[in-house]
Design a protein around this nucleic acid. Sequence first.
DNA 1: GTCCAAATTCAAAACGTTTAGATCTTACTC
DNA 2: GAGTAAGATCTAAACGTTTTGAATTTGGAC
Lengths: 341, 341
Amino acid sequence: MATLREIGAELGLSVATVSRALNGFPEVNEATRERVRQAADRLGYRPNRIAQRLVTGRSGMVGMVVKIKPDMSADQTFFEILTGLTAALSEREIDLVLAVDQGADPLQPYEKLLERGILDGFILNAPVRNDPRVDFLQARGIPFVLHGQDRADPHYATYGIDNAGVSTQSVNLLAQLGHRRIALLNGDLANAHAHDRRTGFLSAMAAQALEADLLREGATFESHGYTQALDLLAGPRPPTAFICTTTIVALGAMRAVQDRGLSIPHDISVMAHDDALPFTRAITFDPALTVTRVPMRDACTPLANMLVDHLNGTPADRLQVKLDADLIVRASTGPAPRGEI
Amino acid sequence: MATLREIGAELGLSVATVSRALNGFPEVNEATRERVRQAADRLGYRPNRIAQRLVTGRSGMVGMVVKIKPDMSADQTFFEILTGLTAALSEREIDLVLAVDQGADPLQPYEKLLERGILDGFILNAPVRNDPRVDFLQARGIPFVLHGQDRADPHYATYGIDNAGVSTQSVNLLAQLGHRRIALLNGDLANAHAHDRRTGFLSAMAAQALEADLLREGATFESHGYTQALDLLAGPRPPTAFICTTTIVALGAMRAVQDRGLSIPHDISVMAHDDALPFTRAITFDPALTVTRVPMRDACTPLANMLVDHLNGTPADRLQVKLDADLIVRASTGPAPRGEI
DNA sequence: GTCCAAATTCAAAACGTTTAGATCTTACTC
DNA sequence: GAGTAAGATCTAAACGTTTTGAATTTGGAC
């Protein structure tokens, strides 16, 4: 590995000039800059990140923490973000350091990574409500970008989707189709997005003058969708439509509907929010699933850009994006059945 | 963050002595060492990795590359290793840096990570035969540990399982049960492990004086297991037993057997190799699946240890582990049906 | 030719650590 | 009490970069 000193020796220049030439400082002669550039190319010079970091305090590395579940597996959505983000950051010459949250204390892996003193910032994902990681990093002045939003009025960089709006869009579509008994199969309310979906659902139902009594929450397993849907269908005033928090849950709900001998969308409409993860494609469902859709992967590049901007000094309050979901109507939703009230 | 200098100033010692005291050098007075330790504790001293690296050439960081498939998803087994390894390395005060292989050139992400000059070594996984990454890293003298084995006589650190032995164990079990028509549903032969399974299968069949004509290879999807098994069962001299390269493939094979109206294990025996990934548990199959078993996750701690040893100078030829798989006989294998030849 | 400002370039310090080699203490031997 | 060895600590250099402030060169104006 060539160093600045070697390039300097080659050209009879000081390290200082070589450094400035390569970093685009205005006070260096253009002819010199070109000579330096060529020598650097020829010698295969790569700046030593370690040395840069020691003097600038910037390392070009950011951290991310995988949260693993008790069964030692991690969330599919995490990996979706992880791979996309690594690629996006790599284009910006930033490396991603990984840590694992074994479950005990959500802050511990962040503390541990910070102790090393080698990170410029963090990407946070899957926030819970009023996420303690946000407070922790803000208190220490560590830059970060949150994928999602954990509180009403954030004072940090955040990139997420309008989860309340997801519910509103879904409710409005179904209400337009004449449905009055609409159920929400939500995720665990500890997660910020589930909370927002619930809030959005309640206000959208109220706006349509509908009773919002068919609300369930819990894990996002197929089996959970199945049992909750089955339970609701067996109730005294069953739903005619299901809004599911993920396509996996919708899979379970659809199975429940079919087990009851009902047809989709003739008797029951089913829709879901779709993160467009690789393994379950809503369009291949039978019938093809109506969804509100925001591909997870689409978040990677903007997230990387926001973090880079943030590291370069853009203040957090100018780095707040809240996307609307696309509404994609397919065959799993239809007019409410007649005779039902 | 306290520095050595601050501790030195506090105690009236030079940085050199403080450094030596904390690093356990023998020439420092025990009383002094204790004073230094306490001061370090009190001031919350953490060695600055960056500075350490600059002078020692070691960073305490290792790299790993995710290979993502054309559909932008990554292998489940990779993540299993990744999370386990990150945790295991973290206990050894080593951080893991991630990169993504977008598919074009398998060496490019390694080159890119190396250019940064911030890595001590690599963990390689999922080797293909005569893996070019091995040659690349060896040529550059970069330490690495390979999870698996890519060539017959490796001169590098490697931790893997005896894949030929997996086939031998499987064939021998089935032969003992009287099966003579044994099929192998193998993975893609580009992968080193599939090649070894094939080799082991051929020699084990030969040793049992059985004809090894029922060999299929390809992707490890459920659908692939299904179509291949269906095709073999429709042949002129169908198998009475299937050895599947993964439990997912076995799932497909079992579906094919049932679709043909045959029963497991009465008509057909099915077994598989089981990496014990979180999502498919062989014991919950119906009937419970006989497997050769080596949990992926068990490799994480040994891999981390081997890499650390290797970085500390243990020569590669003393770091070679080849595990035998456990044979777990469950309900999906039974005696060969009478009357078949 | 002299002077001044602008344009370049340089030398040196700094970041926090490790480590080679020098120096200072102490205790022991004769 | 001199000499020596061992024990403890120190000074200084090194790693490769950035950056401050000083030094040099250049070109014009007079």
